[in-house]
């Protein structure tokens, strides 16, 4: 216990405290000014908005993917299972480059999608695509062990009581799966907020349009505006923390039956 706390302190708490201490050198109005420029506000909005959307997409399709991987036996299942980890292993910059190429107007997918009005590259949509890509494994990997241990008896019991498949899924399976799905959602969301490498290529980083908050921080750093960068970082940190706490509370509610 003591060791764990020490470990946590060194790895997490100390750097965060350092960040806050530096920012406390600023007066409140100074901080407010640095943290709430129009450009910064747009960046926050994009980062959190796109991260939420990406996490939602992952929660739905990641659950489906995990379900199929656990419940169905089909050729290539193990390969697909291995591919799930791909976004973990791939350097995010490579992922970003690949996605940007794919969705650019002359890219593989882009050449079909752009004429349809779906612009993947250099748009907020591109940001969502990149964040979905990097967050996907979190949902799948959180859910897989839970699904493997999911009692099939429960489904059969529902059937003997007259419940069809849809009813069984909605009333019996979904409530059991909600807590781990929310955990996966929170992980994917957290990852998306911090994601940098894969987004910068596909987004184009147009200020106030497709510029994400982490990128803005890097720009401030490159301008040697350390305090400006830190002010942004603190805002990012506080909002992320608040959102994760909120998700945690929701998750506890969803999990009320096993506590």
């Amino acid at each position: 216990m003591g060791f764990t706390l020490f470990y946590l302190s060194v790895l997490v708490l100390v750097p965060i405290a350092g960040l806050f201490l530096r920012v406390f050198q600023l007066s409140w109005p100074e901080f407010w000014k640095l943290a709430t420029t129009d450009r910064a506000l747009a960046a926050y909005q994009l980062t959190f908005g796109a991260s939420l959307v990406a996490a939602f997409i992952n929660a739905i399709f990641g659950t489906l993917l995990a379900w199929v991987l656990v419940r169905y036996e089909f050729p290539g299942r193990r390969l697909i299972d291995a591919l799930v980890d791909f976004p973990f292993a791939l350097p995010t910059a490579v992922a970003g480059l690949t996605l940007a190429n794919l969705f650019a107007a002359n890219g593989w997918l882009g050449q079909f999608l752009v004429p349809l009005g779906i612009k993947g590259a250099f748009t907020p949509l591109g940001v969502v695509i990149a964040l979905t890509f990097v967050g996907m494994p979190f949902v799948v990997r959180t859910l897989q062990p839970v699904l493997e241990h999911l009692d099939r008896d429960m489904e059969e019991a529902a059937a003997t009581l007259g419940a069809g498949r849809l009813r069984t899924f909605v009333s019996v399976i979904a409530p059991t799966l909600l807590p781990p799905v929310m955990t996966g959602f929170a992980l994917a969301f957290a990852r998306a907020i911090g994601e940098y490498g894969s987004v910068v290529f596909i987004s184009g980083n147009i200020p106030k349009k497709t510029e994400i908050a982490p990128y803005l921080i890097v720009i401030r750093l490159e301008e040697y505006d350390y305090l400006g960068a830190m002010a942004l970082a603190v805002v990012l940190l506080v909002i992320s923390f608040a959102l994760l706490v909120a998700i945690n509370v929701l998750e506890q509610w969803a999990n009320r039956f096993s506590r």
């Binding site: 009692d151 008896d153 059969e156 529902a158 003997t160 409530p175 039956f257 096993s258």
Partner: peptide
């Protein structure tokens, strides 16, 4: 039907 492992609905 009563199952060997009870198979109660955990969330209810």
């Amino acid at each position: 039907f009563v199952f060997q492992g009870y198979a109660l609905f955990k969330s209810m």
